[in-house]
């Protein structure tokens, strides 16, 4: 009799679980609930410790060690980051201008604006199946799913689950990450895919006759619409031609040190460009 009751309870439990699982897959309501509650609890649990850590490190750096030198270094370092980003943008624009001179109709790149955020934590918890980071901004700051995450050095990944004031972003090293890229010099296109934490990246579907060289920087192509074109992503480390494949075997390394990144930039579309594209669509 007890066995019968256990079996009924088990089947009923499984039925309810699968019903909720299927409903959530379709609607995403439970995922949103978890993002808006669980992620918030984690953020506010970690925040006091992070704050104390930051303040103590800051105090030690500024007042115990090299006071003036550290401040100058901080200022120059932040200036350097901004200039690096500017150089990257200008380089891309210069390359682009050369190519576009031949074109009659030039459609400008959609407008984006940048917002800063902190990395609160890296992948954590038993159900963390993605190589991910948790960042300190969420939907109240305008973060949406697929918001690009980058540093002045290059692309880090994209937001997969935004919470209220914290979000989860998938890194480009994750197995499920795919980015449409092209070579900065030769403009050959391919699909950059992650192979796991700390592993090299693969560039798929780059044609056998495509010109690409070791050391070439891969930038976002903008073809998929998730990232604006021209942002640096990875550096080609090896190019192999195969006799049995239609495509090159290209390997690359990310430009950003994912493990030690503490601050990131979020790229948001300008409201005007959003409304324009909505109008066009």
């Amino acid at each position: 009799m007890k066995l019968k009751h256990t079996a009924i309870a088990l089947i009923l439990g499984l039925f309810i679980y699968l019903s909720f699982y299927s409903w959530n897959l379709r609607s995403g309501q439970l995922d949103r609930l978890a993002d808006y509650t669980g992620l918030e609890i984690v953020k506010w649990s970690l925040w006091p410790g992070e704050w104390v850590h930051d303040r103590s490190v800051d105090f030690l750096d500024r007042y115990v060690y090299l006071v003036g030198l550290k401040q100058t270094n901080d200022r120059l370092s932040s200036q350097n980051d901004l200039m690096r980003l500017e150089i990257m943008t200008l380089r891309e624009k210069a390359e682009e201008a050369g190519r576009l001179q031949a074109l009659l109709h030039f459609s400008p790149v959609e407008g984006w604006y940048v917002d800063g955020a902190r990395v609160i934590a890296h992948r954590m918890g038993p159900s963390a199946a993605l190589d991910s980071i948790i960042i300190s901004k969420g939907s109240v700051s305008g973060v949406l799913p697929d918001t690009p995450v980058l540093t002045p050095l290059g692309i880090v990944g994209r937001v997969v689950q935004p919470g209220l004031s914290a979000s989860k972003a998938m890194l480009i090293t994750d197995l499920n990450s795919r980015i449409s890229v092209r070579g900065q010099l030769h403009r050959s296109t391919g699909l950059l895919s992650g192979t796991g934490e700390g592993e090299i990246l693969n560039v798929k579907y780059m044609k056998l006759n495509a010109p690409v060289s070791e050391g070439e920087i891969l930038v976002t192509s903008g073809l998929a619409g998730l990232y604006p074109p021209g942002l640096p992503v990875a550096k080609v480390t090896s190019v192999e031609r195969s006799d049995i494949s239609l495509f090159l075997k290209v390997e690359a390394v990310p430009l950003v040190d994912m493990e030690n990144t503490e601050e990131i930039l979020l790229l948001h579309r300008n409201a005007t460009s959003n409304s324009t594209s909505a109008g066009v669509n």
């Binding site: 679980y17 995922d31 978890a34 669980g38 918030e40 609890i41 918890g125 159900s127 963390a128 989860k168």
Partner: peptide, 23 residues
């Protein structure tokens, strides 16, 4: 309930892992 929400919020899978895990 609270721990399931925390683990699901942190995880990268569709909701359901922590229910089975804690069950």
């Amino acid at each position: 309930i609270v721990w399931s929400l925390i683990q699901e919020g942190l995880g990268g899978l569709p909701f359901g892992y922590s229910i089975l895990w804690y069950s």
